[in-house]
Design a protein around this nucleic acid. Sequence first.
DNA 1: TTCAAATGCCAACGCTTGTTGGCAACGATA
DNA 2: TATCGTTGCCAACAAGCGTTGGCATTTGAA
Lengths: 185, 185
Amino acid sequence: MTSPRRSDATRAAILAAARERFAADGFERATIRAIAADARIDPSMVMRYYGNKERLFAAAAEFDLRMPDLTGEPTDRLGTRLVSHFINRWEGDETLLALLRAAVTQEAAAERMRLLFAGQVGPLAAQVAPDPAEAPTRAGLIASQMLGFALCRFVLRLPPVVSLDREAAIAWLAPTVQRYLTGTI
Amino acid sequence: MTSPRRSDATRAAILAAARERFAADGFERATIRAIAADARIDPSMVMRYYGNKERLFAAAAEFDLRMPDLTGEPTDRLGTRLVSHFINRWEGDETLLALLRAAVTQEAAAERMRLLFAGQVGPLAAQVAPDPAEAPTRAGLIASQMLGFALCRFVLRLPPVVSLDREAAIAWLAPTVQRYLTGTI
DNA sequence: TTCAAATGCCAACGCTTGTTGGCAACGATA
DNA sequence: TATCGTTGCCAACAAGCGTTGGCATTTGAA
């Protein structure tokens, strides 16, 4: 049981600013100075509370996919449920965007991304796939489609992908994910 | 008709080194000094021949998807043909990898990626899609899957995606691309 | 009231970066 | 041979970066 510190508000402000900057600019273009300015504190405070830039990123990019429990869900609705859930997670929390932007050049961020999909999508695939041994492959394929969609929509901003509304996106992507999850090759 | 210059070999060496570094490290982590060292010349030569780092990248990331002519191809083989072609392009030329890594943080690279898919996949989709007006959307969806696959395989290196052999990758992805190209929602 | 810990800012360090200007060697042309 | 553009390197610049140490102020407990 740790008692709340007076600096908790500062720590939180730093973390929020860091998430925003990392999401918008990526790891190397987001500077400690800019993050500190956003949080209205001195850059040296960032160092005191988080040690260095890498550890700050590690703290700011803490993320959980919060995969839903799909037991009892009709098998043919799994794709729709999953795509809908992923879009929710992407749009409700910019941390995943920060993670994606950083993972392209930061090995530590890439490793976290690997753990995220292997550890959270993998088990879900193991539950519903015809052969549980294929679960990692199926999780990887789902990652390729959902990360690719996020890349095109939020990072590259391909106009036709940006302008897809939520329902159209689900209608297009759900059958793909459904097949990666339960279909046969 | 421009006559060949004595420095053409140097220019080519710089360009080759730049492609390699940009592909491996991304735009900001690839330094002019490192590129010059790889090319075994002085950093100032890079500036003389390419002006600045952005123009060097623009020259190094010149790329064409070389989309094949698919007229006369059986409609149901389009997905396979396309996926196979994309994998060839990815594996045969690291320029596309450099472009992807840079596009995540460099607006100019992102713009080039947008033009690449709108200008080269779009027209192909317009030929074979049920409704040509949907061509941009279909091209965007194909981009989301193929870029997502490349992201997971070459950049993030998700183990199950890396270990997919060529045939398995085509078998999984081709139906997806086929549906994005010719299927209905 | 006293005092030590916590909080915050300032100024500066050392390093790397992209970029520039000048100077020597070379090579083709006259 | 004399000349002039080309090719290349060296040294240095200004700017920005992550990071550090010291000093003032505030806070909460004794």
